[in-house]
Design a protein around this nucleic acid. Structure first.
Lengths: 226, 226
DNA sequence: TACATCAGGATTGTCGACAATCTACTGATG
DNA sequence: CATCAGTAGATTGTCGACAATCCTGATGTA
């Protein structure tokens, strides 16, 4: 595979080589093709992508700032490993940030935001009925939901922190620990109520419901882990 | 100035050159020696520090991931500029995260944490009495307070997000927009009540008080800006 | 056997040079 | 006079090589 030739799925010409490497590696780490906890060899990866070590190192540093890699001077980089503790920490941070996002979304939402949210909800309901209980697409659907609400908050710092930083870790846990939520039906109703609160402009309620939603998901995971 | 020779205030030998550059530049950006909104010239900075462009670029990328710099491909890096909106966004994110930190600190705090918090509070009280109203050291004192509570939360992701990421932006606004809080006496009492809640192990109350504390600070700034 | 010491090999950190790209100015044209 | 194309200069992106550092395992000693 040679990213310079534009053969990659992600290789848009307008991006720098280092950025394409970053995007490719991010995907492989999130999906576990590069296993969690494994060591990264700069020369090996550079050869694999026909890139120089410099460009590769730039990509690695971006991954580090995403929290997907840990680097130590004169030692090298390792993919973070997935721990129960790390997963639970992630939930607490999401509860705080997405709760706030939900509050802000209720106050700042535009008509477009509302239309998109309603449409998404309808689509999810349809999918749910079709698949009655199997909840196959739910993970990505749940992701859409949270993603869109954060976008609607209008707070760029919040959006960046969640969507460009934390969510890749969330997806990494989902892919690799296979946490396809078995709470499909219940989650759908919670989503529905949250959107109602946002529509009503009730920031306080929207925040409470979102926090409860995330905490329920966390408790569900916690129970599963024992 | 040549960071390789160890003449810098920050030049600990165990760090890589790129890391020392990063620390130095971070300080200069936070304190405004490199003005907000100004363009960064890689060749110029590299000459100034007697470093190669490669090492400097590594430092710049870390600054970007801190949100202190914005880079665009084939164009270069600029220091972020300080806007009213950005400041208010920062407050909302802090309210969410530090509220959660406070809740967790109330549940997870160790005896050492409590001792440190009490001692810090006593020191601040003393300083406040000494300076009666002038509130000169309050900004750094306030910083200590928030910093320590976040540490006591025990959530590494939360700690990293606040202490290694957001707080540098906070300090940048404080230095350059000169937001020495005029709420010294009132802030002290709020701090005091928050620590009481943490001591009592009342996570819910601790979170509410911290959020109110930060929101009051935000409203104070908002009023000032008009 | 357990522990410390010390090469050998490999990996990371740093550098200077070349290629690709953008910016600003000059000049031509409607 | 305004607008646009083109060129010159400077800046960023990328690369390969050298130096500094670390890890592994082999050797020797208590």
């Amino acid at each position: 595979m040679d990213l310079r030739e534009g053969q990659s799925e992600i290789a848009e010409a307008s991006l720098s080589l280092a950025e394409r490497l970053f995007l490719t590696l991010r995907g492989e780490i999130v999906e576990g093709q590069i296993p969690a906890g494994s060591k990264i060899s700069e020369p090996e990866l550079a050869r694999r992508f026909n890139a120089s070590r410099g460009s590769l190192r730039e990509a690695l540093m971006r991954l580090e700032s995403l929290g997907l890699l840990e680097r130590r001077v004169n030692v090298g980089a390792r993919v973070v490993d997935l721990t129960e503790r790390g997963l639970l920490e992630l939930y607490d941070v999401r509860e705080a940030l997405e709760g706030m996002a939900c509050r802000l979304a209720a106050l700042e939402r535009t008509e477009e935001d509302l239309a998109a949210l309603r449409q998404m909800l309808a689509r999810h309901e349809q999918q749910e009925e079709l698949q009655a209980g199997r909840a196959y697409f739910q993970p990505e659907g749940d992701f859409d939901f949270h993603f869109r609400i954060v976008q609607a908050s209008g707070n760029d710092l919040l959006i960046d922190t969640l969507c460009n930083r934390l969510y890749y870790r969330v997806r990494m846990y989902r892919y690799q620990l296979g946490m396809a939520s078995p709470r499909a039906k219940r989650a759908f109703h919670e989503h529905s109520h949250i959107i109602e609160a946002i529509e009503a402009g009730d920031g306080e309620l929207a925040e409470i419901l979102m926090r409860r939603h995330i905490r329920a998901s966390r408790q569900n995971i916690e129970k599963k882990l024992r």
